[in-house]
Computed example of a mutant assay.
Amino acid sequence: MAVHHQASIVPTKAELLAAWVPRQPWAAGADTSSLTKLGSYRFDDPDGEVGMETHVLATADGQVLQVPLTYRGAPRAGAEESLVTTMTHTTLGDRWIYDALHDPVYAAVLASTIATGGHEADLFLSTPDGLVLQPASARVRGSGTAPSAPAAGWSGPRVTVAGTTSRIECDGALLTVLHVLETTTASAAADELVLTGTWLGQDRPVLLAVLR
């Protein structure tokens, strides 16, 4: 599960996305002068150390973007180039925000979710009376039926951007993450394992990522 705290953060997520997304090559064909949140989904880190949240955003010209980020309580060694910003969180303290595509924890959990037919983490709000389950603003589902995660190690993922997608390669496995989403179809090859998602106003599943 993922836990959301009643806290102030500086910069806000909307502010950091508005500053960072327009500079990304996969967003070059979209009007990112304004970004509107459509939903988001989280994954669980098995070790409980890394927050993983993927934002689904509408652009000024009506395109839909998928933006995965990871949140860490300390800098990740050697990851300076994928650092988005640092954040001050009134409950959790200083946070380091990274482009999730370069984060091995995100790659491993995304691959596992797709391969095993997993889904987004339940989100709870931390209150003085305990944890309160929050409604999901986006839901995702992997298409695989494997009993466990693939054996590939993701400790040194190689990331390349190809148009509006990012490719994460490691140990012979390949993850393709779509950044500009096609909301009318969820097409993929019959032998591909995929992650699809829905959110408020988008009942038809949308293709989000592919595992080969």
Rank of each mutant, 00 (worst) to 15 (best):
A146D: 11
R95W: 01
L195K: 07
Q134F: 05
S40W: 12
T12I: 03
R23F: 09
D45T: 05
A19H: 04
G93L: 08
T70V: 07
Q63F: 04
P205N: 04
M1W: 11
S8N: 13
A28Y: 01
G73D: 13
T176A: 07
P22E: 07
S40K: 08
V84D: 00
I9M: 05
W96Y: 15
V109N: 01
V140F: 03
G51E: 02
S148W: 12
S137A: 10
R72C: 02
T90C: 06
H5N: 11
L131K: 10
A111S: 06
V67E: 04
T145Y: 11
A100Q: 02
A14Y: 13
R72L: 04
W26Y: 13
A79D: 09
I168P: 04
G144K: 00
E49W: 09
R167E: 14
M52C: 05
T165A: 09
L125Y: 07
V84H: 00
H4G: 05
R139G: 09
P25V: 15
G201D: 08
P22I: 06
S155T: 15
E120H: 14
L101I: 10
A74G: 09
G29I: 03
T86S: 14
A189E: 13
A173P: 03
E169R: 15
T54Y: 07
S187H: 14
W199D: 00
G78Y: 05
V132H: 11
G197F: 06
T198W: 02
W154P: 03
A107E: 07
W26M: 10
S187P: 00
V140D: 04
V109F: 02
G201L: 13
G73K: 13
